[in-house]
Amino acid sequence: MPGLRLNLRGRTAANAAFATGYALVFHGAPQWLSARGLRVGLASAGVAAAGYGVALSVPALRAKLIEFADQEPEVSPIEWAAVHIPIGTAYSEELIFRGTLEPLLANTFGPRTGPMLGALTFGLWHIHPARTAGDSVPGTVALTTLGGLAFSWLRRRGGSTTAPFLHHWALNAGGVLAPRLARRFGPVGPAQ
């Protein structure tokens, strides 16, 4: 995909199209319309949002968030958080990894090994983005592999891909919006 040199909107469309095609070819079963998945997903997304709320309320953490506020996307932060993260990232990755690949791996390698292999694959999927951002590749792979294990647990707990999708969206959208809010409030809080 990097060779296509698409802008963010093009990458979002390409990611969603690829993920949908992948799921169709490999008989993905995301079970998006799951009440239990929605409940688990909203609860876990609430935990992520609360974590950002705590970080914004602690001056030292708010100061750290401000350091990330200058990473501007090609589009407005609202469009990025409301369109590109849910469709181009959370939908695409959750459909590929938790909705399609993980069940295939679980059927092939067993219910314990399959999710671990899926999480590791998810971690490796993030090598190119880490290089592009100048982030630590081993650190990114380790962190996203752990994230993949958490998303896998949410999928099993919620019985659908809806739960990890909502948590994934909340984490990434918070990562876009929280630094901008931190910058607005400043390291010691809004003026009284």
Rank of each mutant, 00 (worst) to 15 (best):
152 S>A: 14
172 N>A: 10
18 F>G: 02
12 T>K: 05
148 G>S: 09
24 L>M: 15
124 L>H: 03
156 R>A: 09
44 S>Y: 07
138 P>N: 11
157 R>W: 14
89 T>Q: 14
55 A>S: 11
45 A>H: 04
152 S>R: 08
13 A>D: 11
98 R>Q: 11
173 A>R: 03
75 V>I: 10
84 H>N: 08
103 P>F: 00
180 R>Y: 09
118 G>P: 00
54 V>Y: 13
41 G>T: 04
42 L>F: 13
166 L>H: 00
23 A>L: 10
165 F>S: 00
20 T>W: 08
133 A>N: 12
115 P>M: 06
157 R>A: 14
122 F>C: 02
22 Y>A: 02
69 A>S: 15
80 W>N: 10
75 V>G: 07
124 L>D: 06
6 L>M: 05
148 G>R: 01
36 R>A: 12
1 M>P: 08
70 D>N: 13
143 L>M: 12
65 L>W: 09
11 R>W: 13
62 R>C: 03
43 A>N: 05
75 V>Y: 11
157 R>H: 07
121 T>C: 12
104 L>C: 11
73 P>R: 10
155 R>P: 05
119 A>M: 05
146 L>M: 13
188 V>Q: 15
165 F>W: 12
174 G>S: 09
114 G>D: 12
30 P>G: 04
10 G>Q: 07
54 V>C: 01
69 A>F: 03
98 R>F: 05
86 P>W: 04
78 I>L: 13
40 V>C: 03
119 A>I: 07
180 R>C: 02
110 G>D: 03
6 L>K: 07
105 L>E: 06
130 A>Q: 06
62 R>E: 03
74 E>H: 13
120 L>F: 14
113 T>L: 14
72 E>V: 13
35 A>Q: 07
96 I>A: 04
137 V>G: 05
107 N>Y: 06
